[in-house]
């Protein structure tokens, strides 16, 4: 079986500085795969390249059997790759409902869109209660729910989440992690970038540890969770 996403020797640079220095990994349909690593390791750069916002220096990206290289960012969602970016990046002066509708920008099935919006409100009832509120006025946790919901609105084949737990309270973080678990049981394929290695690895089928632009360790989430070096470096144990 071929993987849903295949990344081969991907290299990305900002000017002369190479932020991603040749990484390879795959995501199989139905899996949750996580990229963990310290600040500046190149995780966000990787996701932004996958969704076409950055052009790679070299390397091959294959998604659902098709090459993604050279496909402009606005055409990538169409292929089934959704990206909930780091820092949530909502449209702050638009309402919750409008943000969700924009997530479905390319869809034409009005009835299906309404159904999906309702499903997101069921998943996160607070969003439903505040649907007319400008998203810039929401709390961090509410914004994160909305960012995830918006990414789901395109009915993606692969959902990429960049640090969904960033800046959230422990309770909120748990809620987000439960939601990811829930999405997985529904069969969603997820590529999860996290600083919170413990939570991410507990969820993930596969994990990749990144350090300064390279993948230094890859294994099942379970194995990495109990790996000594990982525990030392990322789980604050010594």
């Amino acid at each position: 079986m071929t993987a849903l996403l295949e990344v081969e020797d991907l290299r990305v640079a900002y000017g002369k500085i190479e932020a991603v220095k040749g990484i390879s990994f795959t995501v199989e349909a139905g899996q949750v795969v996580t990229l963990i690593g310290t600040n500046g390791a190149g995780k966000t750069t990787t996701l932004r390249t996958l969704s076409g916002l950055l052009k790679p220096l070299a390397g091959k990206i294959t998604f659902d059997g098709q090459p993604l290289n050279g496909v402009p960012a606005h055409k990538i969602v169409e292929r089934g790759l959704a990206h909930s970016p780091e820092g949530r990046r909502l449209f702050p002066r638009l309402t919750i409902a409008e943000n969700l509708q924009l997530g479905a920008f390319l869809r034409k099935d009005t009835a299906g869109i309404e159904e999906d919006i309702q499903r997101i409100y069921d998943l996160f009832p607070i969003l439903g209660e505040r649907r007319k509120q400008a998203s810039g006025t929401l709390s961090g946790g509410e914004q994160q729910m909305l960012a995830m919901g918006r990414a789901l609105m395109s009915r993606p084949k692969l959902l990429m989440l960049d640090e969904p737990s960033m800046g959230l309270s422990p309770i909120m973080m748990q809620k987000i992690m439960e939601t990811i678990e829930e999405l997985r049981t529904q069969g969603m394929t997820i590529l999860l970038v996290e600083q919170n290695a413990q939570a991410a690895l507990s969820l993930a089928d596969q994990g990749h540890v990144m350090e300064i632009g390279k993948v230094v360790l890859s294994d099942s989430g379970e194995t990495l969770l109990h790996d000594e070096s990982v525990r030392k470096a990322y789980l604050g144990e010594d």
């Binding site: 969704s51 076409g52 916002l53 402009p72 960012a73 606005h74 055409k75 969602v77 169409e78 959704a82 990206h83 970016p85 990046r89 909502l90 449209f91 702050p92 002066r93 638009l94 924009l102 997530g103 920008f105 390319l106 918006r150 395109s154």
Partner: peptide, 12 residues
């Protein structure tokens, strides 16, 4: 409001 994120929505 956010050009990059607009692209992620599929907006040209």
């Amino acid at each position: 409001q956010d050009r990059d994120t607009a692209k992620l929505m599929g907006i040209n």
